[in-house]
Protein backbone atom coordinates (compact mmCIF):
# COMPACT_ATOMS: atom_id res chain seq x y z
CA UNK A 1 0.00 0.00 0.00
CA UNK A 2 2.72 2.41 0.90
CA UNK A 3 5.55 3.01 -1.49
CA UNK A 4 8.87 1.97 0.00
CA UNK A 5 11.33 4.66 0.93
CA UNK A 6 13.56 4.97 -2.06
CA UNK A 7 16.61 7.04 -2.56
CA UNK A 8 15.98 8.03 -6.14
CA UNK A 9 12.62 9.77 -6.05
CA UNK A 10 13.55 12.80 -4.03
CA UNK A 11 15.44 15.73 -5.29
CA UNK A 12 16.62 17.71 -2.32
CA UNK A 13 20.27 18.26 -1.62
CA UNK A 14 19.99 15.90 1.32
CA UNK A 15 20.91 12.34 1.13
CA UNK A 16 18.24 9.81 1.80
CA UNK A 17 17.93 9.22 5.48
CA UNK A 18 18.04 5.68 6.65
CA UNK A 19 16.58 4.91 10.03
CA UNK A 20 19.94 4.76 11.70
CA UNK A 21 21.22 8.00 10.23
CA UNK A 22 18.16 10.03 11.01
CA UNK A 23 19.76 12.16 13.68
CA UNK A 24 19.12 12.90 17.28
CA UNK A 25 15.38 13.26 16.94
CA UNK A 26 14.82 9.84 15.45
CA UNK A 27 11.84 8.14 16.93
CA UNK A 28 12.55 4.74 15.52
CA UNK A 29 12.58 1.98 18.02
CA UNK A 30 15.75 0.04 17.41
CA UNK A 31 14.21 -3.34 17.86
CA UNK A 32 11.81 -2.75 15.01
CA UNK A 33 12.57 -2.21 11.40
CA UNK A 34 10.65 1.02 11.42
CA UNK A 35 9.63 2.63 8.21
CA UNK A 36 9.24 6.36 8.19
CA UNK A 37 6.14 8.01 6.91
CA UNK A 38 7.65 11.45 7.33
CA UNK A 39 11.31 12.39 7.49
CA UNK A 40 12.18 15.93 8.51
CA UNK A 41 15.71 17.22 8.06
CA UNK A 42 17.04 20.63 8.97
CA UNK A 43 13.61 22.23 9.02
CA UNK A 44 13.53 25.95 9.75
CA UNK A 45 10.38 28.03 9.54
CA UNK A 46 10.28 31.81 9.65
CA UNK A 47 7.24 34.06 9.82
CA UNK A 48 8.58 37.36 8.58
CA UNK A 49 11.33 38.04 11.13
CA UNK A 50 10.12 35.51 13.69
CA UNK A 51 11.92 32.20 13.79
CA UNK A 52 9.17 29.70 14.55
CA UNK A 53 10.95 26.37 14.09
CA UNK A 54 14.68 25.78 14.66
CA UNK A 55 16.72 23.08 12.93
CA UNK A 56 14.27 20.26 13.32
CA UNK A 57 15.31 16.70 12.57
CA UNK A 58 12.63 14.14 13.23
CA UNK A 59 11.28 10.95 11.75
CA UNK A 60 7.69 9.91 12.08
CA UNK A 61 7.07 6.21 12.04
CA UNK A 62 4.73 4.73 9.52
CA UNK A 63 1.53 3.25 10.89
CA UNK A 64 1.72 4.84 14.32
CA UNK A 65 0.14 7.75 16.11
CA UNK A 66 2.60 10.50 16.90
CA UNK A 67 1.64 13.32 19.24
CA UNK A 68 3.22 16.76 19.21
CA UNK A 69 3.02 18.39 22.60
CA UNK A 70 4.33 21.60 24.07
CA UNK A 71 3.14 24.97 25.31
CA UNK A 72 1.38 27.46 23.03
CA UNK A 73 3.63 29.02 20.46
CA UNK A 74 6.18 26.22 20.60
CA UNK A 75 5.83 25.66 16.86
CA UNK A 76 4.02 22.32 16.91
CA UNK A 77 1.10 23.47 14.75
CA UNK A 78 3.49 25.21 12.39
CA UNK A 79 5.36 21.95 11.83
CA UNK A 80 2.12 20.10 11.25
CA UNK A 81 1.13 22.68 8.66
CA UNK A 82 4.39 22.12 6.83
CA UNK A 83 3.44 18.50 6.18
CA UNK A 84 0.67 19.48 3.77
CA UNK A 85 2.15 22.85 2.89
CA UNK A 86 -0.71 24.83 4.38
CA UNK A 87 1.96 27.34 5.35
CA UNK A 88 2.15 28.27 1.68
CA UNK A 89 -1.07 30.19 2.27
CA UNK A 90 0.46 32.35 4.98
CA UNK A 91 2.21 35.33 3.47
CA UNK A 92 5.68 35.88 4.83
CA UNK A 93 6.12 32.27 5.87
CA UNK A 94 9.44 30.77 4.79
CA UNK A 95 10.23 27.11 5.05
CA UNK A 96 13.78 25.75 4.69
CA UNK A 97 15.04 22.23 4.94
CA UNK A 98 13.51 19.07 3.67
CA UNK A 99 10.42 17.10 4.52
CA UNK A 100 9.95 13.75 2.86
CA UNK A 101 6.67 11.95 2.95
CA UNK A 102 7.16 8.35 1.91
CA UNK A 103 10.43 9.36 0.37
CA UNK A 104 9.31 12.29 -1.73
CA UNK A 105 10.51 15.76 -0.81
CA UNK A 106 7.30 17.75 -0.59
CA UNK A 107 9.09 21.09 -0.82
CA UNK A 108 10.46 20.17 -4.21
CA UNK A 109 9.62 22.64 -6.94
CA UNK A 110 7.75 19.98 -8.88
CA UNK A 111 5.45 18.98 -6.03
CA UNK A 112 1.78 19.02 -6.92
CA UNK A 113 0.49 20.67 -3.78
CA UNK A 114 -3.14 19.68 -4.42
CA UNK A 115 -2.12 16.03 -4.74
CA UNK A 116 0.08 16.32 -1.64
CA UNK A 117 -2.90 17.60 0.32
CA UNK A 118 -5.05 14.77 -0.96
CA UNK A 119 -2.46 12.36 0.43
CA UNK A 120 -2.27 14.17 3.79
CA UNK A 121 -5.71 14.70 5.21
CA UNK A 122 -6.06 17.43 7.80
CA UNK A 123 -8.47 17.86 10.68
CA UNK A 124 -8.67 21.26 12.30
CA UNK A 125 -9.18 22.61 15.79
CA UNK A 126 -12.71 23.75 15.18
CA UNK A 127 -15.04 21.43 13.28
CA UNK A 128 -15.39 23.05 9.88
CA UNK A 129 -18.03 21.21 7.85
CA UNK A 130 -19.05 22.96 4.67
CA UNK A 131 -22.60 24.32 4.55
CA UNK A 132 -23.66 21.37 2.45
CA UNK A 133 -25.36 18.09 3.16
CA UNK A 134 -23.59 15.38 5.15
CA UNK A 135 -23.16 13.35 1.99
CA UNK A 136 -21.79 16.25 -0.04
CA UNK A 137 -19.28 17.10 2.67
CA UNK A 138 -17.66 13.70 2.46
CA UNK A 139 -18.03 13.58 -1.31
CA UNK A 140 -16.34 16.98 -1.70
CA UNK A 141 -12.71 15.79 -1.67
CA UNK A 142 -13.62 13.00 -4.09
CA UNK A 143 -15.29 15.40 -6.47
CA UNK A 144 -12.52 17.98 -6.44
CA UNK A 145 -10.06 15.25 -7.27
CA UNK A 146 -11.98 14.28 -10.33
CA UNK A 147 -13.91 11.23 -9.19
CA UNK A 148 -17.19 11.34 -11.08
CA UNK A 149 -18.93 7.98 -10.85
CA UNK A 150 -22.01 8.19 -8.65
CA UNK A 151 -21.72 4.63 -7.42
CA UNK A 152 -18.03 5.03 -6.59
CA UNK A 153 -18.66 8.23 -4.68
CA UNK A 154 -21.54 6.67 -2.78
CA UNK A 155 -19.45 3.68 -1.83
CA UNK A 156 -16.47 5.76 -0.70
CA UNK A 157 -18.68 8.12 1.29
CA UNK A 158 -20.19 5.20 3.14
CA UNK A 159 -16.78 3.66 3.74
CA UNK A 160 -15.39 6.93 5.12
CA UNK A 161 -18.39 7.52 7.34
CA UNK A 162 -18.11 3.98 8.66
CA UNK A 163 -14.41 4.45 9.35
CA UNK A 164 -15.23 7.65 11.19
CA UNK A 165 -17.83 5.79 13.26
CA UNK A 166 -20.55 8.10 12.07
CA UNK A 167 -22.42 5.94 9.60
CA UNK A 168 -25.01 4.51 11.96
CA UNK A 169 -25.84 7.95 13.29
CA UNK A 170 -26.32 9.63 9.93
CA UNK A 171 -27.20 6.96 7.39
CA UNK A 172 -30.87 7.96 7.44
CA UNK A 173 -30.23 11.65 6.96
CA UNK A 174 -27.34 11.91 4.56
CA UNK A 175 -29.09 14.73 2.76
CA UNK A 176 -29.60 16.96 5.76
CA UNK A 177 -27.22 19.81 6.41
CA UNK A 178 -23.95 18.97 8.09
CA UNK A 179 -24.55 21.98 10.31
CA UNK A 180 -27.44 20.16 11.99
CA UNK A 181 -24.98 17.73 13.59
CA UNK A 182 -23.60 18.16 17.11
CA UNK A 183 -20.05 19.43 17.60
CA UNK A 184 -18.58 15.99 18.12
CA UNK A 185 -20.45 14.58 15.14
CA UNK A 186 -19.27 17.50 13.04
CA UNK A 187 -15.68 16.77 13.97
CA UNK A 188 -16.09 13.10 13.09
CA UNK A 189 -17.66 14.21 9.82
CA UNK A 190 -14.55 16.32 9.17
CA UNK A 191 -12.44 13.25 9.89
CA UNK A 192 -14.54 11.23 7.46
CA UNK A 193 -14.04 14.00 4.91
CA UNK A 194 -10.30 14.06 5.54
CA UNK A 195 -9.93 10.32 4.97
CA UNK A 196 -12.38 10.08 2.06
CA UNK A 197 -9.71 10.66 -0.56
CA UNK A 198 -7.64 7.88 1.02
CA UNK A 199 -4.64 9.82 2.31
CA UNK A 200 -1.46 8.17 3.56
CA UNK A 201 -1.15 10.45 6.55
CA UNK A 202 -3.77 12.12 8.72
CA UNK A 203 -2.80 15.40 10.35
CA UNK A 204 -4.86 16.48 13.33
CA UNK A 205 -4.45 19.96 14.75
CA UNK A 206 -5.89 19.84 18.27
CA UNK A 207 -8.95 17.99 17.00
CA UNK A 208 -10.65 17.81 20.40
CA UNK A 209 -10.01 21.26 21.78
CA UNK A 210 -13.53 22.44 20.88
CA UNK A 211 -15.27 19.26 22.05
CA UNK A 212 -16.84 18.19 25.32
CA UNK A 213 -15.33 15.23 27.23
CA UNK A 214 -17.74 12.64 25.82
CA UNK A 215 -17.21 13.71 22.22
CA UNK A 216 -13.47 13.81 22.93
CA UNK A 217 -13.57 10.21 24.11
CA UNK A 218 -15.36 9.14 20.93
CA UNK A 219 -12.83 10.92 18.74
CA UNK A 220 -9.92 9.41 20.68
CA UNK A 221 -11.36 5.95 20.20
CA UNK A 222 -11.67 6.77 16.53
CA UNK A 223 -8.01 7.80 16.41
CA UNK A 224 -7.12 4.42 17.90
CA UNK A 225 -9.19 2.62 15.28
CA UNK A 226 -7.85 4.66 12.40
CA UNK A 227 -4.26 4.18 13.47
CA UNK A 228 -4.49 0.59 12.28
CA UNK A 229 -4.68 1.78 8.70
CA UNK A 230 -3.17 5.23 8.55
CA UNK A 231 -0.27 7.20 9.98
CA UNK A 232 -1.55 9.91 12.29
CA UNK A 233 0.18 13.01 13.58
CA UNK A 234 -1.79 14.80 16.25
CA UNK A 235 -1.02 18.14 17.83
CA UNK A 236 -2.50 18.38 21.28
CA UNK A 237 -2.56 20.69 24.24
CA UNK A 238 -3.81 17.92 26.40
CA UNK A 239 -0.99 15.76 27.72
CA UNK A 240 -3.38 13.08 28.92
CA UNK A 241 -4.68 12.82 25.41
CA UNK A 242 -1.18 12.17 24.12
CA UNK A 243 -0.81 9.39 26.67
CA UNK A 244 -4.16 7.91 25.63
CA UNK A 245 -3.74 7.96 21.86
CA UNK A 246 -0.11 8.22 20.85
CA UNK A 247 2.56 5.60 20.36
CA UNK A 248 5.21 8.23 19.99
CA UNK A 249 5.37 11.71 21.43
CA UNK A 250 7.50 14.67 20.56
CA UNK A 251 7.89 17.57 22.98
CA UNK A 252 8.60 21.01 21.57
CA UNK A 253 9.59 24.14 23.39
CA UNK A 254 10.23 27.58 21.88
CA UNK A 255 10.44 26.26 18.35
CA UNK A 256 12.89 23.48 19.19
CA UNK A 257 12.41 19.78 19.55
CA UNK A 258 13.40 18.93 23.12
CA UNK A 259 12.75 15.24 23.12
CA UNK A 260 10.98 12.58 21.12
CA UNK A 261 10.38 8.96 21.78
CA UNK A 262 7.87 6.34 22.81
CA UNK A 263 5.06 7.98 24.74
CA UNK A 264 5.57 5.85 27.85
CA UNK A 265 9.21 6.73 28.11
CA UNK A 266 8.66 10.41 27.46
CA UNK A 267 6.10 10.71 30.19
CA UNK A 268 7.76 8.48 32.77
CA UNK A 269 11.49 8.52 32.17
CA UNK A 270 12.27 11.50 30.00
CA UNK A 271 15.89 12.25 29.22
CA UNK A 272 15.53 15.99 29.61
CA UNK A 273 14.75 17.99 32.69
CA UNK A 274 12.56 20.36 30.62
CA UNK A 275 10.40 17.49 29.41
CA UNK A 276 9.96 16.25 32.93
CA UNK A 277 8.98 19.70 34.08
CA UNK A 278 6.40 19.99 31.31
CA UNK A 279 4.84 16.55 31.59
CA UNK A 280 4.55 16.90 35.34
CA UNK A 281 2.74 20.18 34.91
CA UNK A 282 5.36 22.53 36.28
CA UNK A 283 4.84 24.89 33.33
CA UNK A 284 2.85 24.99 30.13
Amino acid sequence: MTPPVTADNHVSGHRSASASAAGSGSMSVETRAARHAIEIQGLNVHYGKGHAVHDLNLNITHGEVTAFIGPSGCGKSTILRCFNRMNDLVSGCQVRGSIKIHGANIYDRRTNVMELRRRTGMVFQKPNPFPKSIFDNVAYPLRIHGIRGKAVIKERVEKSLRSAGLWDEVKDRLNTSALSLSGGQQQRLCIARAIAAEPDVLLMDEPCSALDPIATKTVEKLINDLSKTITIVIVTHNMHQAVRVAHQTAFFYMGRLVEAGPTDKLFHKPDHQQTLAYVTGQFG
Binding site: M86, L89, E115, M122, F124, N128, Y140, I144, R193
Partner: peptide
Protein backbone atom coordinates in the same frame (compact mmCIF):
# COMPACT_ATOMS: atom_id res chain seq x y z
CA UNK B 1 -16.42 33.52 4.06
CA UNK B 2 -14.96 31.87 7.16
CA UNK B 3 -11.24 31.24 7.33
CA UNK B 4 -11.92 27.73 8.69
CA UNK B 5 -13.83 26.70 5.59
CA UNK B 6 -11.19 28.15 3.31
CA UNK B 7 -8.49 26.23 5.20
CA UNK B 8 -10.67 23.15 5.15
CA UNK B 9 -11.05 23.26 1.39
CA UNK B 10 -7.35 23.89 0.77
CA UNK B 11 -6.51 21.17 3.27
CA UNK B 12 -8.44 18.66 1.19
CA UNK B 13 -6.44 19.61 -1.88
CA UNK B 14 -8.86 22.04 -3.45
CA UNK B 15 -7.41 24.46 -6.00
CA UNK B 16 -7.81 28.20 -5.74
CA UNK B 17 -10.76 28.15 -8.09
CA UNK B 18 -12.45 25.22 -6.32
CA UNK B 19 -12.11 27.07 -3.03
CA UNK B 20 -13.42 30.25 -4.61
CA UNK B 21 -16.42 28.37 -5.94
CA UNK B 22 -17.09 27.10 -2.45
CA UNK B 23 -16.93 30.69 -1.21
CA UNK B 24 -19.35 31.84 -3.91
CA UNK B 25 -21.79 29.06 -3.07
CA UNK B 26 -21.47 29.88 0.63
Amino acid sequence: FPQELEQGAYGLGATWWQTTRLALVY
